[in-house]
Amino acid sequence: MPKFAANLSMMFNEVPFLDRFAAAAESGFKAVEYLFPYDNPAEIVAERLQAAGLAQALFNMPPGDWAAGERGMAALPGREADFASALDTAIAYAKVIGTPLLHMMAGLAPASDSQAIATYRENLQRAADRTGEAGIGLVIEPINGRDMPGYFLNDFNRALDFIAEVDAPHVKLQYDVYHRQILHGDVIMSLRQMAPIIGHIQIASVPDRHEPLTGELDDRRIFAEIDAIGYQGYVGCEYRPAAGTREGLGWMSKV
Rank of each mutant, 00 (worst) to 15 (best):
M1D: 09
M1I: 13
P2E: 05
K3V: 07
K3T: 04
F4E: 01
N7P: 08
M10D: 01
M10L: 15
M11R: 00
M11K: 00
N13F: 02
E14C: 13
R20A: 05
R20H: 11
R20S: 07
A23M: 06
A24S: 13
A25F: 10
G28M: 07
K30E: 15
V32A: 11
E33Q: 09
Y38K: 02
E43Q: 11
E43W: 11
L54F: 12
L54K: 09
A57T: 14
N60K: 03
M61H: 01
P62H: 12
P62I: 00
W66C: 00
A68K: 06
A68D: 13
G69C: 09
G69M: 10
E80A: 11
A81R: 15
F83W: 09
A84T: 13
A84N: 05
A86P: 00
D88C: 01
A90P: 00
A90E: 10
I91K: 09
A92W: 06
A94K: 06
H103T: 09
H103Y: 01
A106Y: 00
P110I: 03
S112M: 08
D113K: 13
D113T: 08
A116V: 12
A116S: 15
A116Y: 11
T119K: 13
E122Q: 15
L124I: 09
R126I: 04
A127N: 07
A128C: 06
R130A: 15
R130Y: 04
R130D: 10
T131F: 08
L138M: 09
L138T: 03
I140S: 05
P142V: 01
G150P: 01
N154M: 06
N154F: 00
N157D: 14
A168F: 04
A168Q: 15
V171K: 04
V171S: 03
D176I: 05
D176S: 12
Y178N: 02
R180F: 02
Q181P: 04
Q181V: 05
Q181F: 06
L183C: 08
L183F: 01
H184M: 13
V187N: 03
A195C: 05
I198P: 00
I203R: 02
A204N: 06
P207I: 04
H210T: 02
H210D: 04
G215H: 11
E216P: 13
D218H: 14
D219K: 10
I222P: 01
D227M: 12
I229D: 02
G233V: 08
V235I: 13
V235N: 03
G236L: 05
C237M: 08
E238G: 08
A242H: 11
A243N: 14
G244A: 10
S253R: 12
